[in-house]
């Protein structure tokens, strides 16, 4: 009797696709660079043109790495939320974290127009945006954690998260109403999402925070699997529900917080990639699902980024639009074919 399915083959294939896409992603851009040169540069060799080296090492590579971190982080967060809330419609943004981040950024950008002064100078730096959105996300996170400790019902947390989201959106609307067109445009550009523009220092900070979240996952693989049976069974298997819930919320907030801070609110990935993964792998075991959604999330975002660059053209589409335009039909198609959806 084969007791447990092994997914080694699938993982090898997916990893291969990931590496391939990483190379393809780096190869395309508004400046065309021969593939052999790209390999040389990546391997630390010298390129015939120093500008190519600059483009690859300081623009395309950090962007591709950002795409991998963002894609995998959002997919993992989405999976966590779907399991925690036992709701297939949950995604990384249900807790209102991204609304919080948006609020932070809106206060900074739009507020700089209204209040002027120091805000205005900060508003135009990457760090300023990242810090503002982190603060906003952290604020909502704290509110969610405090209420999560107070309410016993997990579903209430879901609704409370939605309410926080609504309130922050409303505040943003008010701010927008009092702002001038230029500021509003700047805010809208931020909300399109962007994988580029990160320096290596920023990528490093991003990676460290991302890693803390990923390490946290090791604590919750077992509880996550028992959550598949519902909270009562989970408790009877010796799981401290409240503690696991807090850890899961913390990981999700950390990941979505840092992602929104550095790349803006990127839609679709967190909701859809877990579903695509479950349809492909046909399992609910988090020991398999967590690494699988991470790799697939990275792959999907690399593909979306490739499409957004509109290869051979000078334009770049907003990544947020591409993820939804490209992704939603894929999920609809998958669901129509497979007919059933699981948490």
């Amino acid at each position: 009797m084969i007791l447990q399915k092994s997914y080694t083959k699938q993982f090898i294939a997916l990893s291969f696709v990931l590496v391939l896409l990483l190379l393809i992603n780096i190869s395309f851009g508004s400046v065309s660079i021969p593939f052999s040169e790209i390999i040389d540069i990546l391997l630390g060799g010298n390129s015939s043109k120093s500008s190519w080296e600059l483009i690859i090492l300081h623009f395309r590579l950090p962007k591709a790495i950002t795409a991998i971190l963002v894609g995998s982080g959002l997919a993992i967060s989405g999976l966590l939320m779907q399991t925690l809330f036992r709701n297939p419609l949950a995604g990384p943004f249900v807790l209102g974290i991204s609304s919080g981040a948006s609020l932070g950024v809106a206060l900074l950008i739009l507020g700089s127009g209204i209040f002027g002064g120091v805000l205005a100078t900060i508003a135009f730096s990457n760090w300023g945006l990242a810090i503002a959105s982190s603060l906003g996300a952290a604020l909502v996170l704290m509110a969610v954690l405090v209420t999560a400790n107070k309410v016993r019902n997990t579903m209430s947390i879901l609704i409370i998260g939605l309410m926080f989201g609504t309130v922050t959106s409303a505040i943003i609307s008010v701010l927008t109403f009092f702002s001038d067109a230029e500021k509003i445009q700047q805010f809208i550009f931020w909300s399109f999402g962007s994988l580029g523009n990160l320096s290596w220092n920023e990528v490093l900070v991003f990676f460290i925070i991302y890693l803390v979240g990923i390490l946290g996952l090791l604590k919750v693989i077992k509880p996550l699997n028992t959550f598949l049976l519902g909270e009562n069974y989970s408790k009877s298997l010796g799981i401290d529900i409240k503690k696991s819930r807090i850890i899961i919320l913390l990981i999700t907030s950390l990941l979505t917080g840092v992602i929104t801070a550095f790349a803006g609110p990127i839609a679709f990935i967190g909701l859809a990639v877990p579903h695509i993964t479950k349809l492909v792998f046909k399992t609910s075991n988090h020991k398999t699902l967590l690494p699988a959604v991470a790799i697939l999330g990275a792959i999907v975002l690399l593909v979306c980024d490739l499409i957004a660059q509109l290869p051979t053209s000078e334009f770049t589409l907003p990544i947020n639009a591409v993820t939804s335009l490209f992704g939603a039909p894929v999920v609809i198609w998958l669901l129509i074919r497979k007919k059933k959806i699981y948490i």
Binding site: G230, S284, N285, Y342
Partner: peptide, 10 residues
């Protein structure tokens, strides 16, 4: 328990 298990692919 009597409660229904959440749908999953276990």
């Amino acid at each position: 328990l009597t409660e229904k298990l959440p749908e999953s692919q276990l």
